[in-house]
Design a protein around this nucleic acid. Structure first.
Length: 251
DNA sequence: AATATTTACAACCGCATGCTG
DNA sequence: TCAGCATGCGGTTGTAAATAT
């Protein structure tokens, strides 16, 4: 498979986006959508590569993105999903409506890893020793807890911080497969907000195998009110301002 | 108040994968 | 079947803001 060069670097702007650039991108996508990211910057009058535009849109400008601090429930969900899925950020993001894989990845590296190690450090040394001895075993048991013993032979392997190695060695499913299934699972849930449906709409809604459906349905149990709670507002041209996109600084 | 360090997060990079002709 | 292209994904970096000294 050939791989095209990322983009023509010459003359293209890089680094932080200005408000004017954001406006151009938002206006263009609102009017025309984004059928072709590579052609988009030229058509929108932007001196950016398509990749940069796509990233800016999907991670920051998309109206259904939930900005602001993560709730404890969201953080717990991420931790739980990470135990099950490893660094499959997009798969995890699919279970967190309004959150992007990039955002989740960031919060994992900056906050949640520490949160976990802190909580582990509070364990007694004996406990820690036990834990370390049973790490791999407990991972499987953890999966069993979610899936039930009758499903413990699922063709999925757990990953912790060394997830990359594990996934490279043994992960039998591609991310897209898992994401598709996850999306389908999300669709089937009665507690999902419209923003999630939108977020998941890019994937093909194929029906997962019953066992996979079961697995996904049991990845996390989240209170209905949690997802239906409105924690973000949509963004359009008229209400775009610096404050809308500066929520991250409110921490 | 000045400087150093840490934190948070936007953005970039390169590889993987799917689609199309 | 294969090559080229477009897009998705995860790892990593750069830097502004916050906090500590």
């Amino acid at each position: 498979m050939g791989r095209s060069p990322c983009c023509e670097k010459l003359g293209l702007k890089r680094g932080p986006w200005s408000k004017e650039e954001d406006d151009l991108l938002i206006n263009y996508i609102n009017k025309n959508g984004h059928p072709n990211w590579r052609a988009l910057p030229k058509l929108a009058g932007l001196l950016r590569c398509g990749k940069s535009c796509r990233l800016r849109w999907t991670n920051y400008l998309k109206p259904d993105i939930k900005r602001g601090n993560f709730t404890n429930e969201e953080e717990d969900t991420i931790i739980e999903l990470h135990q099950l899925l490893g660094n499959r950020w997009s798969t995890i993001a699919a279970r967190l409506p309004g959150r992007t894989d990039n955002e989740i990845k960031n919060i994992w590296h900056t906050r949640l890893k520490k949160k976990i190690s802190k909580s582990q450090a509070q364990k007694t040394p004996e406990l820690q020793e036990e834990t370390s001895m049973e790490t791999s075993k407990s991972d499987e048991q953890n999966l069993d807890t979610h899936l039930g013993p009758e499903n413990s032979n699922f063709d999925i392997h757990l990953e912790s911080d060394n997830s990359k190695d594990n996934s490279e060695i043994s992960s039998p499913k591609t991310n897209s497969e898992i994401q598709q299934q996850s999306s389908s699972s999300v669709h089937s849930s009665s507690s999902i907000s419209s923003s999630c449906e939108d977020a998941c709409s890019n994937t093909t809604a194929t029906s997962p195998e019953p066992r996979d459906q079961f697995m996904l349905d049991n990845l996390v149990e989240i209170d209905d009110d949690f997802w239906s709670e409105v924690l973000w507002t949509t963004v359009d041209d008229s209400n775009y301002n610096d404050n809308n996109f500066d929520l991250s600084k409110n921490n």
